[in-house]
Design a protein around this nucleic acid. Structure first.
Length: 817
RNA sequence: GCGAGAGUGGUGGAAUGGCAGACACGCUAGACUUAGGAUCUAGUGCCUUGCGGCGUGAGGGUUCAAGUCCCUUCUCUCGCACCA
C-alpha cells in the first residue's frame, strides 16, 4: 500500500487554516452562555530544547475536545501563548552575552512553528507572550492593585536563597531542601523582599476548592499546603517578667500535661528569658542554629537538641513552674514560634523530654483504660481518649475537653480559640534581570511610592551585564540612570525598586489576557470577561498543583474582590495529563538518551499519527511509556483510512450490520470524546474501519459520518477525506472545512442488537451460551437455559437451590449435590 | 513517618458487580508482492492429548456472581515531611 501523502496534506491544510483564519473566534452574542466554552492549555515556557513530546499530549486532548465542541454548535475559545520570562534565557545570556529577549523570541518562534505543525485549532490572533511590554504592563498593573489593597509588603525575614540561581525562592519552590529548578541546596539569607499576603486568602482558597471540579489528589495537595488547623492560643505568665509567652496548640485538652516550654532559637523573648548562668550556652546554641540550613535542622537532625534558658513559666491550670528551653525543633515561622511541651501526647515532645529528662505526665487515657494514672507512661499516645490528671476536666472525652478548657482559658483572659495555617506569605521578588520590574519607587521622604498607572509599563532597561550581583541585588541595581529617578509624590530624588517579579507573575493571569489580548485601556474588557469566564476546562501537568494553580487562584480572588472579574474561581474543571515516559519506562531525559523528538515523529509519520498515537496510548491522566511500535500501529490505521477513501464512493444503502456498527460507533465516539476517553474512542473507530475497509465500494452513508468522527483526531486527514467526499457536491470552495461541519447523529434504536448472547452459568461457571431475541422475558431465559444439553450434564442429579436471571445477559443456576 | 494514586497476557491497555484480556503492538503459520516500518487470511493468557482446570500483586471476606465492593498485606510512583 502506498504511504499516504501526509506531508502534502498536512502542509496544505495548515496553510488553509492560517489563510482563512478558520479558528478565529469572536464574542458572538448569537451563542447563549451555555453554548460557549473556554478550553485552556497550560502555556509552555519556550525552552531552548524545543517542544517535548509531553506538550502535544495535553494540547491534542484539548484540541480534539474543542473541535468536537465546535461541531456540536459551541463557540469555543481556545488560545495559546508563551510563558516567556524565566531563568534559562537569562542564564544563557550570562554565558553568551546574548540578550534574553533575543533568545526568548527565537525560542517562541520555534515553539510556535512546532505547535502549528501539529495542526491545533488555536486562535492565533490571541497569542500573548508574558515578556512583551504590552503584556507585562498589565502584570505590573495587577501588582499595583495588590499593593493598594495592602496585599504587597516589604519584609526582611530570613528567606530561602538559592546560591546557584542567586535569588530568593518562595516556599513552594523549595523541594527536599533543594531549589526546585537547579537542585542546589537552599540556604537562608536575610535580605529585603517583596511579599504577597496570600495568607489573608487562606480560608477563601480552601473553600473555593469545594466549588471546582478538580482531581481530588490536587485539591488535597492544596488543602495540605494551606494546612489549616484549629486549636487555641494560650498565654503563659512569666514570673519576674511583664511579658507573657503565647503558644499555639491544637490540643488545649493536654494543658495539664505541659511540663516545659520550648522557644524557637529565633524567638524574640529568648534574650530576655536567658539568665546569666545560661547565657553562654544559649548564645552558642542560637548561633549554631542560625548557621544550619533548613535541611540540617529537619532531615539530618531528627535527634532533639536544645538548651535551658534558666527561666520558668507558670502552667495556667496547674499553677506549677515549668522550665523554658530553646530548641530548633520549634519553628519560628509557624504559630507563635513557641510551644508548650506535652511529652505524654506528642511524639516530638516525648523525644525531647526523654533526651533531657523532663517530667512526663499522662493527661489523656484511651477508652477503657482504668489507671492508675499516677505513673510516668511507657509510651507516647497521640490518639483521642478522655482526660485524666486534669482536675475538674477529668473524664471528658478529648473533643469536649478541648472545648471546655478553651472556654475556661477564655473566661480568664489567658487564652482563646485560634486557627493556624502552614501556608506562608508568598515571597514575590527575585534578584534577577529577566522578569517584570516591580513598579514602585523608594523615596527617602515618602517611603515606598507606587508608580502611577499611566506610567506603566515600567520597561526593563538594557543592561551590559546580566550576572546577578549575588549580594541580594538584581543586575538592575548596576544601572544608575535607571535606578535614580524622582519621586512621583514629592518630586525629590528617589530610587527605583531593582527586584523583579518571579516567573509565576505572568502565568498568574494569562488566561484573562487571552480574552482581550490587544486592549490597551484595560487588562480585559469587562463585557468580554463576562462572555467567556470562567475557564471551563484547564489541562496541564500535575507539577503545578501548588505553585501556579494556587497563585493564580489567589490573584483571581483579589481581582474578583476589586470587581474586575466576575467569578471567584478561575478554573472550573482541571485535568492533569500523565507524563509520557521513555521507551525504557523511565522519565525522558537527555542523560538517559531516551528522549523522543516530536519533529522526527512528525517528519516520519505525520502530525496526525503523532496526535492519534498520543491519545491511543492510554487514559489521558496516567503516565505511560512511549512506544514507536505502537505509533506504527496508529499510523497503519490512518493509512488504511486513506486507502479506503480511494475506493469508489456509492450512494447505495449499506448493509444492516454495517449500519448498526456505524450507529454504535457514532454513539461510542461521541460519548468517549465528550468524557475525554480518547483511547477507547479511537479503538471503536478502528473496529469500524476494520469492517468497512473490507468493502469494494464505499457507501457514502457510512463514510461521511466516519470522516466526521475522525476529523477532530486527525484533522488534516479529516479535511482531505472530507474534501474528497464532497467533490461531487462542489463544496470544496474557499472557507469550507470539516471543522465547520455538524457532528453526526446516531439513532439509538439502530445501536441496539436484536439478538443477545446469553451466558448460562452453573454455580457461577460458564457452561453454555444461548442466542435469544433481545428483551426475552425471564421465564423464557430460564426455560431455554434449563433445556440446554450442556447445562443438563452439569445439573443432572442435583437440586436447584437458586436461579438468577439477568435479562439480556445471563442465567446462573445454583445447584446443590 | 504521614497522605494520595497505581498493580490485569510477552508489551501499551479494555471491561454500568454479570463471558477477563476489546483495540493495538509483538509473535506463529500461510497467501501475495511494484521488498514496504507493506498488505491480506488464520492463530496467539497459562496448564492439559482431551474432558476440563487455573488465571487481574498476595491473603482473607461479602455475593448466586468480584479485576470491580470490604478488611489485611506487599511492591511501585507521586506529594508532604519536626506545622505543635
Amino acid at each position: 500500500m502506498a504511504k499516504y501523502p501526509f506531508e502534502n496534506i498536512e502542509k496544505k491544510w495548515q496553510q488553509r487554516w492560517e489563510e482563512e483564519k478558520t479558528f478565529h473566534v469572536t464574542e458572538d452574542p448569537a451563542y447563549p452562555k451555555n453554548k460557549r466554552r473556554y478550553v485552556l492549555d497550560m502555556f509552555p515556557y519556550p525552552s531552548g530544547a524545543g517542544l517535548h513530546v509531553g506538550h502535544p499530549e495535553g494540547y491534542t486532548a484539548t484540541d480534539i475536545y474543542c473541535r468536537f465542541l465546535r461541531m456540536n454548535g459551541y463557540n469555543v475559545l481556545h488560545p495559546m501563548g508563551f510563558d516567556a520570562f524565566g531563568l534559562p534565557a537569562e542564564n544563557y545570556a550570562i554565558q553568551t552575552g546574548t540578550h534574553p529577549e533575543v533568545t526568548t523570541m527565537a525560542n517562541v518562534d520555534r515553539f510556535r512553528a512546532q505547535i502549528k505543525a501539529l495542526g491545533f485549532s488555536y486562535d492565533w490572533d490571541r497569542e500573548v507572550s508574558t515578556c512583551m511590554p504590552d503584556y507585562y504592563k498589565w502584570t505590573q498593573w495587577i501588582f499595583l492593585q495588590l499593593f493598594k489593597q495592602g496585599l504587597a509588603y516589604e519584609s526582611e525575614m530570613p528567606i530561602n536563597w538559592c546560591p546557584s540561581c542567586k535569588t530568593g525562592l518562595a516556599n513552594e519552590e523549595v523541594k527536599d531542601g533543594e531549589c526546585e529548578r537547579c537542585h542546589t541546596k537552599v540556604t537562608r539569607k536575610r535580605i529585603r523582599q517583596w511579599v504577597l499576603k496570600i495568607t489573608v486568602y487562606a480560608d477563601r482558597l480552601l473553600e473555593g476548592l469545594d466549588k471546582v471540579d478538580w482531581p481530588e489528589p490536587i485539591k488535597l495537595m492544596q488543602r495540605n499546603w494551606i494546612g489549616r488547623s484549629e486549636g487555641a492560643s494560650v498565654h503563659f505568665s512569666l514570673p519576674g517578667h511583664k511579658e507573657t509567652l503565647e503558644v499555639y496548640t491544637t490540643r488545649p485538652d493536654t494543658l495539664f500535661g505541659a511540663t516545659y516550654m520550648v522557644l524557637s532559637p529565633e524567638h524574640p523573648l529568648v534574650p530576655a528569658l536567658t539568665t546569666k548562668e545560661c547565657k553562654a550556652s544559649v548564645d552558642a546554641y542560637v548561633q549554631e542554629a542560625a548557621r544550619k540550613s533548613d535541611l540540617e535542622r529537619t532531615d539530618l537532625a531528627k535527634d532533639k537538641t536544645g538548651v535551658f534558658t534558666g527561666s520558668y513559666a507558670l502552667n495556667p491550670v496547674t499553677g506549677k513552674e515549668i522550665p523554658i528551653w530553646i530548641s530548633d525543633y520549634v519553628l519560628i515561622s509557624y504559630g507563635t514560634g513557641a510551644i508548650m511541651g506535652v511529652p505524654a501526647h506528642d511524639e516530638r515532645d516525648w523525644d525531647f523530654a526523654k533526651a533531657f529528662g523532663l517530667p512526663i505526665i499522662q493527661v489523656v487515657a484511651a477508652a477503657g483504660e482504668t489507671g492508675p494514672f499516677d505513673r510516668e507512661p511507657e509510651a507516647c499516645t497521640v490518639a483521642d481518649g478522655f482526660a485524666v490528671n486534669s482536675g475538674q476536666f477529668n473524664g471528658l472525652p478529648t473533643p469536649e475537653a478541648i472545648k471546655q478548657i478553651t472556654a475556661w482559658l477564655e473566661k480568664r483572659g489567658i487564652g482563646e480559640k485560634a486557627i493556624n495555617y502552614k501556608l506562608r506569605d508568598w515571597l514575590f521578588s527575585r534578584q534577577r534581570y529577566w522578569g517584570e520590574p516591580i513598579p514602585v519607587i523608594h523615596c527617602n521622604k515618602c517611603g515606598i511610592v507606587p508608580l502611577d498607572e499611566k506610567d506603566l509599563p515600567l520597561l526593563l532597561p538594557q543592561v551590559t551585564s546580566y550576572t546577578p550581583t549575588g549580594t541580594g541585588e538584581s543586575p538592575l541595581a548596576n544601572i544608575p540612570e535607571w535606578v535614580n529617578t524622582t519621586c512621583p509624590k514629592c518630586g525629590g530624588p528617589a530610587k527605583r525598586e531593582t527586584n523583579t517579579m518571579p516567573q509565576w507573575a505572568g502565568s498568574c493571569w494569562y488566561y484573562l489576557r487571552f480574552l482581550d489580548p490587544k486592549n490597551d485601556k484595560a487588562f480585559v474588557d469587562p463585557a468580554i470577561e463576562k462572555y467567556w469566564m470562567p475557564v471551563d476546562l484547564y489541562v496541564g501537568g500535575a507539577e503545578h498543583a501548588v505553585l501556579h494553580l494556587l497563585y493564580s487562584r489567589f490573584w483571581h480572588k483579589v481581582l474578583y474582590d476589586i470587581g474586575v472579574v466576575s467569578s471567584d474561581e478561575p478554573f472550573l474543571r482541571l485535568v492533569n495529563q500523565g507524563m509520557i515516559l521513555g521507551e525504557d519506562n523511565q522519565k525522558m531525559s537527555k542523560s538517559r538518551g531516551n528522549v523522543i523528538n516530536p519533529d522526527d515523529i512528525i517528519n516520519n509519520f505525520g502530525a496526525d499519527s503523532m496526535r492519534v498515537y498520543e491519545m491511543f496510548m492510554g487514559p489521558l491522566e496516567v503516565s505511560k511509556p512511549w512506544s514507536t511500535a505502537g505509533l506504527v500501529g496508529v499510523s497503519r490505521f490512518l493509512e488504511r483510512a486513506w486507502a479506503t477513501s480511494e475506493k469508489p464512493i456509492v450512494d447505495s444503502e449499506p448493509s444492516a450490520e454495517l449500519t448498526k456498527l456505524l450507529h454504535k460507533t457514532i454513539k461510542k465516539v461521541s460519548h468517549d470524546t465528550d468524557t475525554l476517553n480518547f483511547n477507547t474512542a479511537i479503538s471503536q473507530m478502528m473496529i469500524f474501519l476494520n469492517e468497512v475497509s473490507k468493502l469494494e465500494q464505499l457507501p457514502r452513508k457510512l463514510w461521511e459520518p466516519f470522516v466526521l468522527l475522525l476529523s477532530p483526531y486527525a484533522p488534516h486527514l479529516g479535511e482531505e477525506l472530507w474534501e474528497k467526499l464532497n467533490i461531487s457536491k462542489d463544496v470544496s470552495a474557499k472557507g469550507s472545512s470539516v471543522s465547520k461541519a455538524a457532528w453526526p447523529m446516531y439513532d439509538e434504536a439502530l445501536t441496539l442488537d436484536e439478538e443477545k448472547e446469553i451466558v448460562v452459568q452453573v454455580n457461577g461457571k460458564i457452561r453454555d451460551k444461548l442466542v435469544l431475541p433481545a428483551g426475552s422475558d425471564e421465564e423464557t431465559l430460564r426455560e431455554k437455559a434449563l433445556a440446554s444439553a450442556k447445562v443438563q450434564e452439569w445439573i443432572a442429579g442435583k437440586t436447584i437451590a437458586k436461579l438468577i436471571v439477568v435479562k439480556d445477559k445471563l442465567v446462573n443456576i445454583v445447584v446443590k449435590a
